[in-house]
Computed example of a mutant assay.
Amino acid sequence: MSTPTQISSCARATTTEEARFRIDYPLAAARNTRVVALDAAAETIVRTAAAQDWDQARFYVAHDPGHDLVTMDGETVPLAGELEHSNTVVMVSTTGESAEAAATIGAACKVRGIMTAGLVVTPGQLSSGALLTLRPYARILLVPADEDDLVELLRATRA
Rank of each mutant, 00 (worst) to 15 (best):
S2P: 15
I7N: 08
A37H: 03
S128F: 02
A108R: 09
S98Y: 04
I114R: 13
T104C: 13
I140N: 12
T71E: 00
S9H: 09
A11N: 13
R20D: 11
S86V: 03
H63A: 14
A28V: 02
Y60A: 07
L69A: 05
E152Q: 14
Q52Y: 14
Y137P: 03
P65Q: 13
D68L: 03
V35A: 08
I105R: 10
E17Q: 14
A101E: 02
P4E: 12
T48K: 14
T3E: 13
T104D: 10
A41R: 11
E75S: 04
G96R: 08
S2N: 06
A30K: 08
A80Q: 07
D55V: 11
R12S: 12
E75A: 05
G106Y: 10
A130E: 04
E18K: 13
R47Y: 08
Q6P: 14
T116S: 15
Y60H: 12
L142E: 10
Y25G: 02
E84W: 03
L141M: 05
M1W: 09
D148C: 08
D64T: 01
R31F: 02
G96W: 07
R20L: 07
Q52M: 10
L69R: 02
V143M: 02
M91P: 08
L150H: 05
Y25A: 07
L119V: 14
N32K: 05
G129W: 00
V121I: 13
A107D: 15
R22I: 11
L150D: 05
M72H: 01
L142V: 12
V89C: 06
A42D: 12
A102E: 07
T122C: 10
T122K: 01
P136E: 04
R155A: 11
M115P: 01
P65F: 12
S8Y: 09
P123Y: 01
A51K: 11
P123N: 03
E17P: 02
H85P: 03
E18Q: 14
E18G: 04
R34Q: 15
R47A: 14
V151L: 06
L38Q: 03
A57C: 15
G74H: 03
A117N: 12
L131H: 02
V77Y: 01
